[in-house]
Design a binder for these strands. Structure first.
Lengths: 263, 263
DNA sequence: CAGTGGTCTAGACCACACT
DNA sequence: GTGTGGTCTAGACCACTGC
């Protein structure tokens, strides 16, 4: 990795360019700092919602200049892992915030703004412990047969059932999750995961298809059999690209649509 | 806006902090530089694919430090308007590049990578001049009845018709576009727009729904009537958020899916 | 007021590409 | 070698927050 942060004194010994020694496979200092910050986040040194040390403090801790720390933080902020607030500090991002409440839910009402319908009504249909199928195991990087929690729920807006979701979670990590806790918790499900299970979802991948309503889903969503639904398969990841949730959603799109911005 | 770039000499007169004079509504210098770069892009001073002047040259031109220019370019690069290549220079982004060939097409085959099926076969069903409906006019910021070009085409992968698209373009800007030119052009349609009509698409918004195949679309896509299709309504924008294209696509999702990454 | 993040500058050197 | 973007540092000052 070039300039070792295990011997940080070297970085200050020879001047402004100390961190940029020539190497075979070059890794910028700020990337290494970013990695260290990531470790601290992963290990829970700073928890979601908390402030992290100031740029100056971190610079002193890692024996680099403030600008280098800044660049590392900039990237983490761009990835939505940290949140900067001028005059206050830099905070660990959390799903329990109004601003980013719907960051992972791209289904919005055709008229009005996201959330304008008020909070969704959540009905937990079931929450049970089961064994991972081959497909679930592959998605969650488990072995087939490993224990998983399976949750089925319906989200309704203005009284209309709109989203049916099946969620699979590794039972080892989400030990103690029950239908009651899911139903009673106020706020995003991912915020509950943060506070109760110390799991922060960082990014997700979604595969979207159009499928006819069948297999009992038409009843739960109160649509005619065969009605086209949006099938949204999501894998959500924590730090270090570790998959932590598989979610299969069926969205009604008669009054809502999936909104995506390309750039 | 604070420090005026119309009187740039002031910025160098008093030292390192010259650009950060206190103001009522504060606008950082690099944001102003970004605006100037955006103007040059919009006015076509540098065309897609071309190099822009070096950071040092731009710094001299705008009478600011290289670091300030760098930050402006960084943001434009993050928005995919510019492309940096170490050792070579900074280039105006273009849709005519292998790397970003499919930046706006999120439909990928279930197995294999995007583009692994080779180039799509494009059949232009029609290309005609018509008048904007109220809906089209609203999307393209035109007046109802204004002249628009309407294109209908089918994209096929490995011989299977997979995407049916209706495209609406303001006729004033796309004067001279014909089915022949669309069919004969090798490469992304947006690359043709760049070279032939000097229109560069910068971002787009998509609204996605599940809808049954009907109205003749089932025949063009060779599916049974009522087959669920992904309906993708896209508005694409050039610089300054000017809408330049309305596109309504219907995607078969039996062998492909719409891939989206959330973060 | 002190402390935080945010901006700007200046200079040095590195990595990469072309000649 | 020369020129490009990329990294790192150091120091100054600005804008915002809260004591």
């Amino acid at each position: 990795m070039s300039t070792s942060l295990l011997a940080p004194a070297e970085n200050l010994a020879v001047g402004p360019d100390a961190g940029a020694l020539p190497t075979a496979s070059f890794s910028p200092l700020y990337q290494q700092i970013k990695g260290l910050l990531l470790s601290s986040l992963r290990l829970g040194e700073w928890k979601p919602g908390e402030v992290i040390p100031s740029e100056m403090d971190l610079a002193a801790r890692f024996r680099v200049s403030q600008g280098t720390v800044r660049k590392a933080i900039d990237e983490l902020a761009a990835e939505n892992l940290l949140m900067r607030r001028q005059g206050k500090g830099t905070f660990v991002a959390t799903h329990a915030e109004q601003q980013v409440q719907f960051r992972f839910l791209k289904l919005v009402p055709d008229s009005g703004t996201p959330g304008s319908e008020g909070p969704a009504q959540r009905d937990i249909i079931e929450c049970r412990r089961t064994r991972a199928s081959a497909e679930v195991a592959r998605a969650l990087a488990l072995r087939a047969g490993d224990a998983v929690l399976q949750v089925r729920r319906v989200l309704s807006f203005l009284g209309t059932p709109t989203i049916l979701e099946d969620i699979w979670l590794p039972a080892a990590t989400f030990k103690g999750l029950t239908a009651e806790r899911l139903a009673n918790y106020q706020g995003p499900t991912y915020a509950l995961f943060e506070t109760e299970f110390n799991v922060r979802m960082v990014r997700a991948e979604e595969k979207i298809r159009a499928e006819p309503a069948r297999g009992g889903r038409e009843q739960l969503l109160k649509v005619a059999p065969g009605t086209p639904l949006l099938s949204v398969e999501r894998i959500a990841y924590t730090y270090n690209d570790v998959p932590m949730e598989l979610r299969r959603g069926f969205y009604r799109t008669d009054t809502h649509h999936y909104q995506n911005n390309l750039s």
